[in-house]
Design a protein around this nucleic acid. Sequence first.
DNA 1: GCTGTGGAATGCGTATACAACATACGATAT
DNA 2: ATATCGTATGTTGTATACGCATTCCACAGC
Lengths: 241, 241
Amino acid sequence: MPRVTHRAETDGEHGVGKGGAIPRQSLAAAVVERLRERIVSGELREGQQLRQDAIAADFQISRIPVREALSHLAAEGLIKIVANRGAVVSALSPEEIGELFETRAVLECYMLREAIPNLSETDFERAESILREFEESLEDESDARSWGQRNWLFHSTLYAPANRPVMMAFLKTLNHNCDRYTRLHLVFTRNLHLAGEAHRKLLDACRTRDPRIASDALWSHIMDAGQYLKEFIARRREQHP
Amino acid sequence: MPRVTHRAETDGEHGVGKGGAIPRQSLAAAVVERLRERIVSGELREGQQLRQDAIAADFQISRIPVREALSHLAAEGLIKIVANRGAVVSALSPEEIGELFETRAVLECYMLREAIPNLSETDFERAESILREFEESLEDESDARSWGQRNWLFHSTLYAPANRPVMMAFLKTLNHNCDRYTRLHLVFTRNLHLAGEAHRKLLDACRTRDPRIASDALWSHIMDAGQYLKEFIARRREQHP
DNA sequence: GCTGTGGAATGCGTATACAACATACGATAT
DNA sequence: ATATCGTATGTTGTATACGCATTCCACAGC
């Protein structure tokens, strides 16, 4: 959707603030993307305040598109807005984090069970190649940013044959919200390879084409991560109150 | 949250448009509520265009809060926004409607299974009384508006003991989206009492305290409705293209 | 020294104003 | 007569401007 406002012409001309100028599409949509990236990547810590003025100035736009962007992010659950008191990056309680992963587990296991009968050899190869890329990128610290994307790509490849676009959309948002915490954990523990192993086990389980086996593997993959994170965050909150 | 803008003083002074003036809280939030009500109640048909100007004039406010409200509703899935071309009440395909109900079934059955061990006699009595109110209100045609609310109230009472606030919030939105179609169906077929019977069966199933029995009952309750509606809408679309 | 009240400062919510984009219709040229 | 382009109109997207809520701090009273 070629959305070129009058600002577009001035984009490249002079200095860009720390945020840089925004290129195309709806400004609000662009701001959503950038802010989400910053939140999910951990650049914006949980609890941090988001001032409309500051963001607007940073992107060199007015507050209106910023407000819309914030509203959108609030709907996704990444931030919380209190009337007249601004927006903060939502700090979920350990229980809420656990629930997020639990919801994922419930829906994704169902998706996988529905997908298994339709999984073709091509799908397996696709997942395999994504997994290899994934494992290679694990070495590269700077690539940590794309970890979430690769993770979702792998999972969604397995679910795609279920042919449930609506659920997929749901799950994508949910994963955004979970990745934020997963990354936090990964950064601290640095055992990224564990995630790789878990994925490989999961893929093997799918190859059996037994819905029960695959589903169980996925269930523990997600719930274990959730449980681990729940405890990790709880400990961390105690130490840094 | 007492949100009184300078508009509040002028609220009662002169004539109200068809929409009436808006009292308190954030204007945007208020508009969301009203529009959602109109969409879910079927007052705004699917596919119908929502012009910002018209809505703003109707509520006697500017377009800014209207835009935010629309954005919010889009996030809930009740409307669709295309850049520079406005918003329309989202017309879901029969397949999408089916998926909506399927998602509900998956999550709500899980919730119910988790809730069953914690269901107390008090909970049963509460559900019972809601169900009675429900059945009484069925006779009153004018009360059809509150059908969705009562329906969700009944369901959520059964899930509450699972103690999963995040999932509950998810499900509430999902139910809003489903009710819109359920209502459509009910208005045409007028067999509201069927819903009452299904709920009574469900309650009895829960009283067995057997997770399997209760879950199965809920599953068919939701999936049957979804399937029926899917076909109903498909037929209706053929006839009124 | 502590508490309560008033005022300034900061930042959000909304209104108004203007610019950009989409569509439809009519004029002109082939 | 048809096709294409320009223009008119309406609607959305964004900027600027202003009023109000909340917060923080100073200062008076106890």
